[in-house]
């Protein structure tokens, strides 16, 4: 565990909790892509199946359980409790365009051709693109609530911090996982445009709105 890894995990946790609190406090999931949230629930479920097969640490187990629990709580909010506020008309990204290639790739490029390893690989690839329905929704409506941009910022920051964690681990432990690194790079690059808008607009007190 190094400082980048820890702050990365905490940033991820912050993102998840910001989203849950935003929905709970405003009693609304307007502007949130339910499709991205479904994809994140699939990501956590397929990646953390090793909860049933191996124990790494109390930290590791607790975080996995919290991430999975929060992912399903978010889905419950969006599709059941606050369903009336869900903006499904703008959440029109075709997720099969992500699921099919990602599923195929995880069968072709993995560390080991075993069910758990393929599911883990699938989750890594899927996570890298899971935010696209949310970004698509924002580009469609042309704006995002400030609290939603904070959520996106911490969610993007988390994988960027993991990139530094992997550089650290490569130099000091000789550890590297090419699948995670390449997918993490893709994931971080997808947020770059958003990071730019967040820094130049939101941090200066303006609402994030895109030119028509």
């Amino acid at each position: 565990m190094n400082v980048f890894r820890l702050t990365g995990d905490l940033s991820h946790l912050a993102a998840i909790i910001i989203l849950l609190l935003k929905i709970w406090k405003t009693r609304s999931c307007a502007g949130i892509s339910g499709k991205s949230q479904i994809l994140f629930a699939v990501v956590f479920t397929s990646r953390y199946l090793d909860l049933l097969t191996s124990f790494i640490s109390l930290y590791n187990t607790s975080m996995k359980v919290i991430y999975i629990g929060c992912a399903y709580a978010t889905l419950y909010f969006v599709y059941m409790k606050f369903k009336a506020t869900y903006d499904g008309n703008h959440d029109t990204f075709r997720v099969e365009f992500l699921l099919v290639p990602v599923g195929g790739l995880s069968f072709l490029v993995n560390h080991d051709f075993s069910p758990l390893e393929i599911l883990w690989t699938f989750s890594i690839y899927l996570e890298s693109v899971a935010i696209l329905p949310q970004l698509f929704m924002i580009s469609k409506t042309g704006e995002a609530e400030t609290i939603t941009t904070h959520y996106l910022f911490f969610l993007g920051l988390y994988r960027a911090l993991y990139l530094f964690n992997w550089i650290w681990r490569f130099y000091f432990e000789g550890f590297f996982d090419m699948i995670a690194i390449v997918a993490g790079l893709v994931q971080t690059i997808l947020y770059c445009d958003f990071f730019y808008l967040y820094i130049t607009k939101v941090l200066k007190g303006k609402k994030l709105s895109l030119p028509a």
């Binding site: 995990d9 991820h12 883990w120």
Partner: peptide, 10 residues
């Protein structure tokens, strides 16, 4: 499999 990195990350 020794080519599979350990899964200690989240």
């Amino acid at each position: 499999d020794e080519d599979v990195p350990t899964k200690d990350e989240l």
